[in-house]
């Protein structure tokens, strides 16, 4: 479960509000799509949720662990796929996965089982022993996905995970999201691909100018707005007061 309470974050001496009083709860066993136009505050919110940025005010609980009070314990609760991969490029893929397994203190048998299962799923068996700097953007993305799940987290947070993935990998990723959800875990991802969100999400949240303007089950939101598709709903909500 993810719980955000009155999260705010401003830049430029408070003049530019990236996130403004955001409060929401995502229950366990749900796939949650976090939507919004460019610059709406999606990545800032995710960065605050993962401890990359500190909020100016508010509280975050990840599986009832307070991120501010127990940051290390809270960080063990989630696996994170950031929107870019810009580090450790001299490591091989396997060294990167081993590093993450060490950080999360994953046992030998568990890490082997995970890697053996995930590498073929994403067709990375051959490349895993090559240096990451030789990887394409999509291959780096797949490696991040595999690494983020190495400790079987209760929460899976993904920032624009579909970017750069080929159709087969995108399919595998969606299946994994569903598997985790069926397993009673929480999947929280941001995306611009509304078709994917529409088919995959149990719930969505739409953010605009740092404020959550809608949250709830897809059907309920569409009924309330008399929209036929998520695209209609999204365009309708995000264009209001624009």
């Amino acid at each position: 479960m993810i719980r955000l309470e009155n999260i705010s974050k401003a830049y430029g001496g408070g003049k530019v509000k990236a996130v403004d009083g955001l409060t929401m709860t995502v229950e366990s066993g749900k796939v949650f799509g976090f939507l919004g136009p460019n610059g709406a505050g999606k990545t800032t919110t995710i960065n605050i949720m993962t401890g990359i940025l500190s909020a100016d005010s508010g509280h975050i609980w990840l599986e009832n662990v307070d991120l501010e009070k127990n940051p290390l314990e809270a960080k063990r609760m989630f696996g994170f796929v950031p929107d870019s991969f810009e580090m450790f490029d001299r490591l091989t893929g396997m060294e990167y996965l081993t590093f993450l397994a060490d950080v999360y203190q994953v046992g030998q048998a568990e890490r082997k089982a995970h890697i053996d299962r995930m590498l073929p799923m994403f067709s990375l068996e051959k490349e895993v022993n090559q240096q990451i700097r030789s990887y394409s953007h999509g291959m780096k993305q797949k490696l991040q996905v595999i690494g983020s799940l190495i400790h079987q987290p209760r929460i899976w947070i993904l920032d624009e995970p579909m970017t750069g993935l080929d159709p087969a990998s995108m399919h595998v990723l969606k299946q994994e999201m569903q598997r985790l959800c069926d397993d009673g875990r929480t999947v929280f991802f941001s995306t611009h691909v509304l078709d994917v969100a529409e088919r995959l999400c149990d719930e969505i949240g739409i953010i605009r100018k740092g404020t959550l303007i809608a949250q709830g089950a897809m059907d309920a939101l569409m009924k309330g707005d008399h929209s036929k598709t998520l695209e209609d709903l999204f365009l309708d909500l995000t264009s209001k007061e624009a």
Binding site: N47, I52, L72, K75, P82, E86, M87, F88
Partner: peptide
């Protein structure tokens, strides 16, 4: 100023 700062901040490392 290293690029890995954001990434490792999300890991359970003290």
């Amino acid at each position: 100023f290293t690029k890995d700062l954001a990434f490792v901040s999300a890991l359970p490392i003290s």
